[in-house]
């Protein structure tokens, strides 16, 4: 039995200790806003926050989480100025094309702005480099992060 804190709620789940978090989130807890992409931490689509830090849920074993707090795309707090600014910028600039990678992109962007208030292009490229987008919305993502940074200050 593993006990996890997800979006402020405690869940006790009966899984093997090396089960990836993503499986638990989607198949057991039913939070399917976090998507499955590659399964080997190469695409970033399954990004969630562990104690505020972006991690890849597909390659994070539940036994490694301990009592860390997990936040998924469903659990982002709209009252948080950074979360609000990122969501607004994403809508204002119409960032999304097909949308499959976007939960991961948003989680990575929020994670970046939590640690770097006003990132440069290089900082954005470094932090977002593990998040793939097959539609190629990278330029709009970078622009939206700059916009959100300006509005969240």
């Amino acid at each position: 039995m593993q006990t996890l804190r997800v979006n402020g709620q405690t869940h006790t789940v009966d899984v093997d200790p090396d089960t990836p978090l993503l499986w638990v989130l989607r198949d057991i807890i039913g939070l399917d806003g976090t998507k499955f992409g590659c399964g080997i931490a190469q695409c970033g689509v399954c990004t969630v926050h562990l104690d505020g830090r972006p991690v890849r849920a597909c390659a994070l074993q539940v036994s490694q989480i301990g009592d860390g707090a997990i936040t998924t795309i469903e659990g982002l707090d709209d009252a948080d100025p950074i979360v609000h600014a990122v969501k607004k910028a994403w809508i204002d600039l119409d960032v999304v094309q097909c949308g499959y990678c976007q939960p991961g992109q948003v989680m990575a962007a929020v994670g970046l702005l939590k640690t770097v208030k006003n990132p440069t292009d290089d900082q954005i490229d470094s932090a977002m480099s593990g998040n793939m987008c097959r539609c190629g919305t990278y330029m709009r993502i970078r622009k939206a992060i700059h916009l959100a940074a300006g509005e969240a200050v």
Binding site: A41, L50, S129, G130
Partner: peptide, 11 residues
């Protein structure tokens, strides 16, 4: 994606 830009390990 796994090792982080500073090599400290993501997760």
């Amino acid at each position: 994606g796994c090792h982080l830009p500073d090599g400290s390990g993501r997760q």
